[in-house]
């Protein structure tokens, strides 16, 4: 049984995805569906809040990678914020901060979106 879920929130013109649980090859389809929903609704400014994300594998990272260039091309981004240290440490070791904008807090990530918008 999957213990992964995606919650949707909006702050200003930023679509926030609250990830909860463990994101792997079994649950990645759920994240993909959530990002496709943003894509359909032309919400290209997406902030992924990882404060309740306990684990992510390359299958989960692959979902971000499959969409991030298109979202950036359309003037948006998929930013990642508030990762738990144990999740961030693996991200960092694998070099993913080079690809994604990863911020310490949701507030900081929203500020980055606002800075670009001005």
């Amino acid at each position: 049984m999957s213990n992964f879920s995606v919650g949707f929130r909006t702050t200003g013109n930023v679509q926030i995805l609250d990830l909860r649980g463990e994101l792997d090859a079994h649950t990645a389809a759920e994240l993909e569906a959530a990002i496709q929903k943003c894509q359909r609704e032309q919400e290209f400014r997406v902030l992924v809040n990882g404060s309740n994300l306990a684990y992510i594998s390359s299958a989960g990272l692959g979902v971000f990678m499959a969409f991030i260039e298109e979202f950036r091309d359309r003037g948006g981004d998929i930013k990642i914020a508030a990762l738990q240290p144990k999740v961030y440490n693996v991200f960092d070791l694998l070099g993913f901060p080079m690809l994604f904008d990863i911020e310490a807090s949701e507030h900081e990530a929203i500020r980055k979106f606002d800075t670009v918008a001005r």
Binding site: S58, A59, L61, G62, V63, M65, A66, I68, E69, E70, V90, L93, L94, G95, F96, M98, L99
Partner: peptide, 22 residues
């Protein structure tokens, strides 16, 4: 190559790379 992979919009294919790094 991480950056190249992102640019070509490929997902996956990192498993062995990750295993070797970790």
């Amino acid at each position: 190559d991480l950056v190249q992979f992102a640019r070509t919009r490929k997902s996956g294919g990192f498993g062995v790379h990750i295993m070797r790094r970790l």
